[in-house]
Design a protein around this nucleic acid. Structure first.
Length: 478
RNA sequence: GGCACCGUCGCCAAGUUGGUAAGGCAAGGGACUGCAAAUCCCUCAUACCCCGGUUCGAAUCCGGGCGGUGCCUCCA
């Protein structure tokens, strides 16, 4: 099996052939930072984080770029509402987003360029487009002339005439054609100096689409391997990026265009206008970030995924199962004083690879990985040979980490997760420990009726007890 | 109206360049346990929204319905 991706450009799964064998350049459209990140952002972040992790594990040398859009109409508007400087506001939200991303296990990209730090590159690109006749300046604005680029619509499969119905010219815009889009927007009266730059066309700021064209070109070159983002970016954002970049260079922008599906809430698209969006900040107060990550990986990245409490609870159970299994295996090997060098299990690696090679089928990969965990537990239960157990746990851990899961020390993760669940349910752990001690006393005196009463008392609060050789442990039921 | 997509067991979800339905949750049985939990083992869709068609063979392809979603305006 070869690595295949569904390419929006060709509408089919294609074998991934990088420009340079063994290397991959990946550009992902990042967040416009005017608010906290939501679960929809988490979806694309996790999807493309897994892409990068998998490519690296599969032997590719990856250069990943994920931008921050830190100058934009919405940022300026939000800043004005709050009486804050737009640049300060965007910096604040970048920091907040980074915290949230860490919590769901999203790695930093190799380059995380900010639009405001690439104004010269954007000006140069715009100048080139004007020079080549693809763009025109009008009263301080610069627009891309869509009809001058014959391939416009090739990504979104739209015809220019079909687009006309939705296109419109805002008051004050100087478009020659309603389909044209802004490359440069003249600074309006009252807009802060911090978001205004000099240019041959007067003071202004870049349009949204041009930043990605300029930054991808700078860090990945004229043509690169993979461009990713949410489905909603296909039109107009990515279509416009293609138009700008390819008009300027005459070369393809990216060979593979990958787009993730939406997160829905109650089967409806989450959006600001519907008021049903869930910020990560909010969700992380109640859920383990890793559980949210596992939830997002439980459905193929191109399909819609519906956010429900029970779906996240299922994912949480799976995260728990992985950590429990790893903890049990580690303890077993410690007890057996195993100190050899574990060998990865090729057949399980291969099973995992096959699922992932098929357009990053994380749902299938997770299922196959879970089989390995099952075998691992069975082997430990059967008091199997330490080197066999070691090979299994080593492989399970490594493959989990390709998905960005099970990276924490198991015992600590279990404690942290329990603490989060306890605080969520308002359970006082000292009270639980006290009840466990009382139950232990009852059990010692063979007063099982009392012991069971205490168990029931805890169960009523959502606390589950586990008696083991080392004493009684507890968990919080979701 | 144009474009794209979805409809698989009670719930979630793979499989969609055709070849005889993964997995998880829930449920039932068993091992283990003072009782439990965790873990492991077993069972659990003649069936893939409906109707036609192509085919030796279709969840997978084609046509027509029904139901749902998204994009076409800022949006992951």
């Amino acid at each position: 099996m070869a690595l295949r991706f569904f390419n929006t450009l060709t509408s089919e799964k294609q074998e991934f052939k990088p420009l340079v064998p063994g290397r991959a350049g990946v550009y992902v459209c990042g967040i416009t930072v005017y608010d906290l990140a939501h679960i929809g952002h988490a979806r694309f972040l996790v999807a493309f984080d897994v892409l990068v992790r998998f490519l690296r594990w599969d032997g590719f040398q990856v250069t990943s770029v994920r931008n921050w859009t830190d100058v934009d109409d919405k940022i300026i508007q939000r800043a004005q509402e709050r009486g804050e400087d737009p640049r300060a506001l965007s910096e604040r939200f970048i920091a907040a987003c980074q915290d949230d991303m860490r919590a769901i296990g999203v790695l930093s990209a190799d380059v995380e360029p900010k639009a405001t730090e690439h104004i010269p590159e954007m000006r140069a690109l715009i100048a080139r487009l004007i020079e080549k006749g693809f763009a025109y300046a009008a009263k301080g604005d610069v627009y891309f002339a869509v009809r001058s680029f014959p391939e416009y619509g090739k990504l979104s499969k739209r015809k220019l005439d079909d687009l006309l119905s939705g296109a419109r010219v805002e008051p004050g815009e100087q478009k020659r054609d309603p389909l044209d889009f802004a490359l440069w927007k003249a600074t309006k009266p009252g807009e802060p100096e911090s978001v205004s730059w000099e240019s041959p066309w007067g003071k202004g700021r870049p349009g949204w689409h041009v930043e990605c064209s300029a930054m991808s070109q700078k860090y990945l070159g004229t043509t690169f391997d993979v461009h990713g983002g949410g489905k909603d970016l296909i039109f107009p954002h990515h279509e416009n990026e293609i138009a700008q970049s390819e008009a300027a260079s005459g070369q393809p922008l990216a060979n593979f265009w990958l787009h993730n599906g939406f997160v829905t809430v109650d089967a409806e698209k989450m959006s600001k206008s519907l008021g049903n969006f869930r910020t990560l900040r909010d969700l992380l107060a109640h859920w383990d970030g890793e559980a949210l990550r596992a939830f997002l990986l439980s459905t193929h990245y191109r399909h819609p995924i519906n956010f429900t409490e029970s779906a996240v609870a299922d994912a949480d159970r799976r995260v728990e199962y992985f950590y429990e299994s790893l903890a049990k295996a580690d303890a077993y090997l410690l007890q057996k004083k195993f100190s050899g060098q574990p060998k990865p299990l090729a057949e399980h690696e291969q099973a995992f690879r096959e699922a992932m090679e098929d357009d990053l089928n994380t749902a299938d990969a997770l299922a196959r990985l879970e089989r390995l965990y099952g075998l691992l537990n069975a082997r430990i239960d059967a008091r199997g040979k330490p080197d066999e157990v070691a090979a299994m746990v080593h492989t399970a851990r490594a493959l989990s980490q390709v998905l960005g899961l099970s990276a924490r020390a198991p015992e600590q993760a279990i404690k942290d997760r329990r603490a989060l669940a306890a605080s969520r349910k308002g359970i006082d752990s000292r009270w639980v420990e006290e009840r466990i001690a009382a139950r232990l006393a009852a059990r010692k005196s063979k007063d099982f009726a009392r012991a069971d009463a205490i168990r029931a008392e805890l169960a009523a609060k959502g606390v589950e007890l586990r008696d083991g050789p080392q004493g009684t442990d507890w968990r919080v039921l979701l």
